[in-house]
Design a protein around this nucleic acid. Sequence first.
DNA 1: CTGTTAGCGCTTTCAG
DNA 2: CTGAAAGCGCTAACAG
Lengths: 334, 334
Amino acid sequence: MVTMSDVARLAGVSVTTVSHVVNGTRPASAATRQRVLAAIERTGYSPNTIARALARARTQSLGLAIGGLGNPYLSELIAAVEGAATAAGYTLLLGDTRDDPEHEARIVAALVERRVDGLLLAPSGPAPAEHSVPVVLLDRFLDVPLDQVGSENTEPTAELVVHLAALGHTRIGMVSGRRGLATTDERIAGYRLGLERSGLGEPLLEEGGSQRDVAREAAHRLLERGATGLVSGNNFMTIGILRALAERGLRVPEDIALVGFDDFEWADLLAPRLTVIAQPVAEIGARAVELLLSRLEDPAQPPRTERLAATFVHRDSCGCDTGHSPDPRVRPSG
Amino acid sequence: MVTMSDVARLAGVSVTTVSHVVNGTRPASAATRQRVLAAIERTGYSPNTIARALARARTQSLGLAIGGLGNPYLSELIAAVEGAATAAGYTLLLGDTRDDPEHEARIVAALVERRVDGLLLAPSGPAPAEHSVPVVLLDRFLDVPLDQVGSENTEPTAELVVHLAALGHTRIGMVSGRRGLATTDERIAGYRLGLERSGLGEPLLEEGGSQRDVAREAAHRLLERGATGLVSGNNFMTIGILRALAERGLRVPEDIALVGFDDFEWADLLAPRLTVIAQPVAEIGARAVELLLSRLEDPAQPPRTERLAATFVHRDSCGCDTGHSPDPRVRPSG
DNA sequence: CTGTTAGCGCTTTCAG
DNA sequence: CTGAAAGCGCTAACAG
């Protein structure tokens, strides 16, 4: 590895000068500047970010700790975060929390030891360990004084329910995600709210554990309890529910209506085109990075919590007569 | 931030000793060990990986540079890489090449400046810039003396074609990916090979640019050229092709047969269940990390190129009479 | 079994 | 406009 002093020697200047021309931190005469640049060129010098980080006490890197990297739903989020970080001159360190508080702690610790300047975390438990670096929560909210970004959950879920109710369903079931996650709890609250607004009583609620196969079984139970309309808590579970329906030979939406949280690339091409709530995933990622950078700049500012609006994407699986609109991204009229 | 010498002072030992008990690099008496551990506990000391990296000249981090992070197809790959890296005690730095050689160069340079110990790269162009760190190529092969892992492409594509031909199709079109990518070229070769083996002449080939909408148009052109069977070069393009077919009101497989490269979570639930070639994505990621670590251990060993077998996943979109097997992951009988 | 000491490569006062 | 020199926090000879 060629170092700064190699360059300095070759250019006949001090390392100080090299450092300053590399970073543009101090003017230099055109002549020395040229000599340094030439020396860099000739040697193929590439700055050692590690040494720089040690001297500057900042790494210009951000950590992203999130559960279930394998979930395709996250690819958009990750891409957005990476893009925003890169654009701002930061490198992204990635860690999978596996949605397990214990593993999350390990991952976060590793990221902190790596001295990331800030951390983006989708918390898998009720409270993330305290840390010495700025943290912004994304996707899932917590009752802590930290910056947080995520989607609106309650109202959209209520909308879903009200929509089914308006179509005449009286037994509307929900397959919820894992209890304790803010998103799950809020969507359940939305579900109840929707029932209430529609004048429907008894909730039909089953826990789908945010996992495909658990959701499949939950759907079966809901059907046995007489549900004619189903609300899914997230995309993974939607897949499981669809499997359950297929296993019973039920058609959507003729035999049963299905709506859910999370849009995905193929929701439009599935056997019934799925009516869903689409989260502004990319925006969440980008905004989270913005909040983090803003906090790095001004650590003293009060924490902000931002809820981004989700979109009702009206397609066919709800069984709406008027659903076959040419533009699938249109809200139902009523 | 509490440093090692804080701990040392508190424990009444030298930093050397602290360093050694932290790293287990040298025995220490039970007594001092305890004192050090206690001091660490009390101070909440967390090692500074940056300083360590500078002193050791290794960062214990790996870089992953890959195009189109937003592609859900990659989430499994990324998860596998992250898992393998974490398991081996490495942290993963992530960079999106945007599948653009120029941007790739920037990303790779950034990763190298970050002094990753090794780099995993899905090359977006014909030749990656030379670098001072070990590189293993994944997903896409290049004619360079580097370690490489990816899926088998040619034979599986040929199988797809032969399968359609065996069902009576004589005009089988292919929507290929972006030219110049090894995967694309190999799949095209496989397509030609399949035609040849089936005694079919004139290829019906259109470039889908590895993008959804380009593929949509390519599919339209292919249909105008009289194709009755379509082979898609990857999952993204499959979506575009399905859109095109929908636009023309063509049913799969009644009106037209469709098979493609890449399986995905929902292929099983799409309007026609898609017959596809499934790449061993997770294995590719995990294996790439293994190759990289092995090279870090023994830099002198000759480069290895590994092609992992892909799986023919037989479902309905090919229009096979015998296709409705209870187990979808069954090879066609012949 | 433990400590002294010289770096790792860069940044940044402070002094010219 | 430029340089000397003191670290940043840790590792690893080397010495005892």
